[in-house]
Design a protein around this nucleic acid. Structure first.
Lengths: 120, 120
DNA sequence: TCACCTTATTCGACATTCCGAATATATTAT
DNA sequence: ATAATATATTCGGAATGTCGAATAAGGTGA
């Protein structure tokens, strides 16, 4: 029963490489054989297998042998919501806020009651 | 104009550490001084500053000096949607699918037209 | 100015990630 | 059994990430 942030961080770690994001995108609508990913992403086979292993260990994809090949599928399509929202954040220029006429509701800074913060 | 997956991967990388997720959670409702985070998370000050630098460089938080201290705030509350969805994925047991009466719509494997996939 | 408080940065050790090359394993066909 | 195809794993080196200790830098107030 590892803590919830550990688990979430593991998911984030699995998403933290452009090749792995591309793999998931290719798998978005259909399962795919490893060799298809190799060609589609134009990367060495070993490298694709290595990234697939990381996605698999994070539980984001599942593998199923089919004859000589192995088909990979996304475990939970909810992963694409995560990725889409990350893209939105990535695209949003930080300057956006300084351009809005009304400042974006500046939050009050927290003054906690711990010994260090209490003074002042 | 780096590609979109590079940018998303950078966001994921910034989220890929439990301490950084905890920092964001503390900042969820209010800005906070560094020292507050130090006490709230019970980590050395240098370590908190290091993680804050990573979040800042990813554009996920912004800093503003206030007298002796520095207040950190979340840049875009949309980050919490990303984190919440990651937690959902992390919690969902993979066995869930084998327990559902109806199999979860097994996708057909992609048979692409590239030279390697075309045969067979 | 000096002392003090808060935060940032640098440094070095250590761990982890990433990659290509090589090799191993699994399956099918002959 | 042998060959051929598809995939996985291992290994070594470069790059990157993480941490604590020490130090630097910014700001306040005597």
């Amino acid at each position: 029963m590892t803590d919830s942030y550990e688990q979430s961080a593991r998911i984030a770690q699995a998403l933290a490489h452009p090749i792995r994001l591309r793999i998931l995108e290719v798998l978005r609508n259909q399962g795919a054989y490893v060799m298809h990913l190799v060609v589609a992403l134009d990367r060495p086979q070993a490298n694709i297998s290595q990234h697939l292993a990381i996605l698999r260990e994070a539980g984001l994809v599942q593998d199923e042998r089919d004859g000589m090949g192995v088909v990979y599928r996304v475990t939970d399509a909810g992963i694409f919501d995560v990725i889409a929202r990350m893209q939105t954040l990535a695209v949003t220029p930080r300057a956006m806020f300084s351009l809005t006429s009304a400042a974006p509701h500046r939050q009050r800074a927290r003054r906690c009651h711990c010994p260090r913060c209490r003074g002042e």
